[in-house]
Design a protein around this nucleic acid. Structure first.
Length: 262
DNA sequence: GCTGCATGATGAA
DNA sequence: TCATCCTGCAGCA
């Protein structure tokens, strides 16, 4: 269930493990057998991340495009370990390491034209040092709620439901506010905060927006919620007001009625 | 055991 | 806006 920060982390890890060497490519589960056979044995140059998309770039202008959706996962390990081989849609092995891609929503072979059309559908990626101006222009002119605009991957690539909730909280902006009601300063801060939060999340491997208060529970789930202000919380992590939930762009949007101006 | 939801996206209506 | 696909899992019977 990865947002952009984890996709970038996965890309960097996969490149470090498998990049620059011939890769054994297969589809143990079978549904990507043809695509895997087409690049099996070729050199895997590197793995790139664009928003929530992964591109495994092979010699010969062939790439494997992976999108994990909500259920997908990527497992990394030594070639000897790793039990879940049978259900992997995509398996890559090289230099003593193995990568398993489990349950992706998308896994397909693409040529340079396919890569170009994919990238053409994505807005600037806060983790790629892209120029934010196209995204800020879209926000400035959109009458849709800012909470819906932030999930639109053609505006900004890589934001998911957790980041949307937490970034808007940090800015004190309610998700149902029309995007174009943000002033220039708010739009600039929105991009800057997004870059900051996503870089931090990529480096940590998880989204933490709320500084830890005391030393409490060792329960992982509890700790996860404690690191956030509103996402999936009952009460605001800053002021204690009950968090409000609403549907925006088909997903549950979380907000604090006190800290986030409507 | 079954249902529905989830850190996602698409295509039809 | 809805149905659908990818899977796992919490909640319920």
């Amino acid at each position: 269930m990865p947002e952009g920060h984890l996709i970038h982390r996965i890309a960097a890890d996969n490149t470090a493990l498998l990049g620059g060497a011939p890769a054994g490519v297969s589809s143990p589960q079978g549904r990507f057998a043809d695509g895997a056979a087409a690049v099996d044995g070729r050199v895997l140059q590197r793995v790139d991340a664009y928003g929530k998309h992964l591109l495994y770039r092979f010699d010969g202008d062939a790439s494997v495009h992976v999108h994990l959706g909500m259920a997908g996962r990527v497992l990394l390990g030594r070639a000897s370990e790793r039990p879940r081989v049978a259900q992997a849609r995509l398996r890559l092995e090289g230099r003593g390491s193995v990568v398993h891609v489990i349950a992706p929503a998308r896994c397909e072979l693409v040529d340079p034209g396919g890569v170009a059309s994919l990238l053409g559908r994505l807005g600037p990626d806060p983790l790629r040092d892209d120029d934010p101006s196209p995204a800020l222009a879209r926000i400035a002119s959109s009458s849709a709620p800012i909470g819906a605009v932030l999930l639109d991957q053609s505006v900004i690539a890589g934001i998911g439901n957790v980041l949307r909730a937490e970034i808007l909280f940090l800015l004190g902006i309610h998700p149902s506010r029309p995007a174009r009601s943000l002033d220039e300063e708010q739009r600039r801060r929105l991009w800057d905060e997004t870059v900051r939060v996503m870089r931090d999340a990529r480096d940590r491997g998880r989204i933490v927006t709320r500084p830890p208060a005391g030393t409490s529970g060792d329960d992982h789930e509890v700790a996860e919620v404690e690191g956030r202000y509103v996402y999936k919380r009952e009460t605001c992590g800053r002021c204690g007001t009950p968090v409000s939930k609403s549907a925006l762009a088909g997903r549950t949007a979380y907000a604090c009625p006190t800290c986030q101006a409507a």
